[in-house]
Design a protein around this nucleic acid. Structure first.
Length: 511
RNA sequence: GGCGCUAUCGUCUAGGGGUUAGGACGUGAGAUUCUCAAUCUUAAAACCCGGGUUCAAUUCCCGGUAGCGCUACCA
């Protein structure tokens, strides 16, 4: 017996940004394919021209690539040709295929034309609700005779094509939920093709609907495992019926739980920026994103390991271990993972990523010089441990470039520290030493001075360091002076409009 | 209303008929550092409820409850 090659797909519709939920679906598909040595395809579900926009497709492609997910078949660029032998991979380019299949079903009597009006359907639904029955289509048009149909067609009455649901339970297997069964009497004859009503109120082009095109495409593209969000679980029996009508093999399914916000509502814009692009812009690393998404609904076999590279994930991942219950998106844990990968990242890489956040402080990236680049790397080494994601850097490092002396002097935190006599004495002592010192201040100079001041004044510990720190940085806490001083002094020498230590002290204490 | 899915610390999860119910994030405490961040150590923190099966149920079964999804000629 030959086992079929695994083929999975990610099939977004270009009606919005790629958000974390669909990114996780893409990731799980990709991991499953790579794990099983199968193919991963990208298909664009753009059958609804009203809502689909081409630039979203380009964005998907960019976001998927950023995450490190590659596909074996599908669109390569937004406007280039597809790759793969099962194309086209945009549903808008497959309309003829669907139409041909619809004809086949109609000819075989497996599908029929339904002329019911929206009003009639609505009345049926209301009645069903009132009678506590499942809301299923009555099947009124199932047995229309050919004469009537021809008459309606001739009269230009709009119609939909429905599939005749057979009278047996619709079963399928789900890799995360197990076997699932729907009773035939709870599922309506699904609409395969709807009639578009044009501006004049007349029936226009026939447009195939989601449940139909998905099934046709999955079958024709020989998809073996359908991994998607569990909002599709209730659609699946309809799709199973379509597979059966065509005599196609029903694939394996895996329905992934919904990702919720902290309020247990489905994650959306209301919960903040949830598109992959917005995380990238905020300075999250793709490996953190991938790692977090993998953990959201899946756990390692040892029950302990939390950090995985993409490569490690392809070895460790198994779809059977994916949890069926909904998961709440935890920004804190994502932040922790991002900090983890930030610590691991090469300085040059971080420099390239973080440079733009300092565009008002630094020259353009392509004009930078080696010395400046090195200096920036050291700045990053100091400040990256303070941030969750890179775009928080400018705020954390702002005082290096300058700070408001008056505000620093008067802030609620600083004022009491400076009000103490010892603070004035310490700063005066420091100013004395700085004034007679003309070279750049090294950590050694500084250390010597602080020791001298300590012995001269008897002030030590926080009383000694807090005022100095405030004078130099505007706050009584921050990075160690050993690293900070060279950064400031060298930054000043690089012409970045950074005040030297001497200038800072004089400005703060007054001359 | 109908149909379906889900239910272990605040959160993500491991586990599984008998366990001190494990790990991680976050939170508290301590260590270290002039301070903060980082780091290390440590503490508190959970099996939705009710029945059944069983010597034994958090685990299996049924029911309830709650949350979520679908219930479109959207995807």
């Amino acid at each position: 017996m030959t086992t079929q090659k695994v083929r999975v797909r990610f099939a977004p519709s270009p009606t919005g940004m790629l958000h974390v939920g669909s990114a996780r679906t893409a990731l799980y598909n990709w991991l499953f394919a790579r794990r099983m040595g199968g193919d991963f395809l990208l298909r664009i579900e753009d059958t609804d021209p009203e809502r689909s926009e081409a630039h979203y497709e380009a964005q998907f492609i960019a976001d998927l690539r950023w995450l490190g997910l590659d596909w074996d078949e599908g669109p390569v660029d937004a406007d280039g040709p597809d790759k793969g032998a099962y194309g086209p991979y945009r549903q808008s380019a497959r309309l003829a295929i669907y139409a041909e299949h619809t004809e086949r079903l109609l000819a075989q009597g497996k599908a029929y034309r339904c002329f019911c009006t929206p009003e009639e359907l609505e009345a049926e639904r209301k009645l069903a609700v009132a009678e506590h029955r499942p809301q299923v289509y009555s099947g009124r048009c199932r047995s229309l005779n050919q004469e009537t149909i021809n008459q309606y067609l001739a009269a230009g009455r709009p119609f939909a094509v429905r599939l005749r649901i057979q009278d047996h339970p619709l079963r399928f297997h789900d890799m995360v939920h197990g076997p699932i069964e729907f009773a035939a009497e709870t599922v309506s004859d699904p609409i395969l093709v709807r009639s578009e009503i044009n501006a004049k109120g007349l029936p226009g082009a026939a447009v195939p609907v989601y449940n139909y095109v998905v099934t046709v495409d999955d079958a024709l593209m020989e998809i073996t495992h359908v991994i998607r969000g569990d909002d599709h679980l209730s659609n699946t029996p309809k799709q199973v019926a379509i597979y059966e009508a065509f005599g196609w093999k029903v694939p394996e399914f895996a329905h992934l739980s919904t990702i919720l916000g902290a309020d247990h509502e489905r994650l959306s814009k209301r919960h903040g920026a949830t598109s992959i692009a917005s995380f990238r812009e905020a300075g999250y690393l793709p490996e953190a994103m991938v790692n977090y998404l993998a953990l959201l609904g899946w756990g390692a076999e040892d029950g302990k390991t939390e950090t995985f590279t993409l490569e490690e994930l392809t070895r460790a991942f198994s779809i059977e271990r994916v949890t069926p219950s909904p998961a709440i998106f935890d920004f804190e844990k994502l932040n922790w993972l991002n900090r983890h990968y930030l610590k691991l990242a090469a300085p040059e890489r971080l420099a390239a990523l973080a440079w733009n956040y300092f565009s008002d402080r630094l020259p353009p990236w392509d004009l930078k010089e080696d010395e400046l680049h090195n200096w920036f790397c050291r700045l990053l080494a100091i400040f990256v441990p303070y941030v969750d994601h890179l775009n928080q850097l400018p705020a954390k490092a702002a005082f290096v470039f300058g700070f408001d002396q008056e505000a620093a002097r008067n802030s609620a935190e600083n004022a009491p520290v400076l009000a103490v006599d010892s603070a004035r004495i310490v700063l005066a002592e420091l100013a004395d030493r700085v004034r007679v010192h003309s070279e750049p201040v090294t950590p050694e100079h500084f250390k010597t001075w602080m020791n001298e001041i300590q012995t001269a004044t008897g002030v030590k510990g926080k009383e000694l360091f807090y005022p100095v720190r405030i004078a130099l940085t505007g706050a009584h806490s921050g990075p160690v002076f050993d690293k900070l001083l060279p950064l400031i002094e060298e930054g000043a020498a690089l012409g970045l409009h950074i005040a030297t230590m001497r200038e800072r002290v004089e400005r703060f204490v007054g001359v």
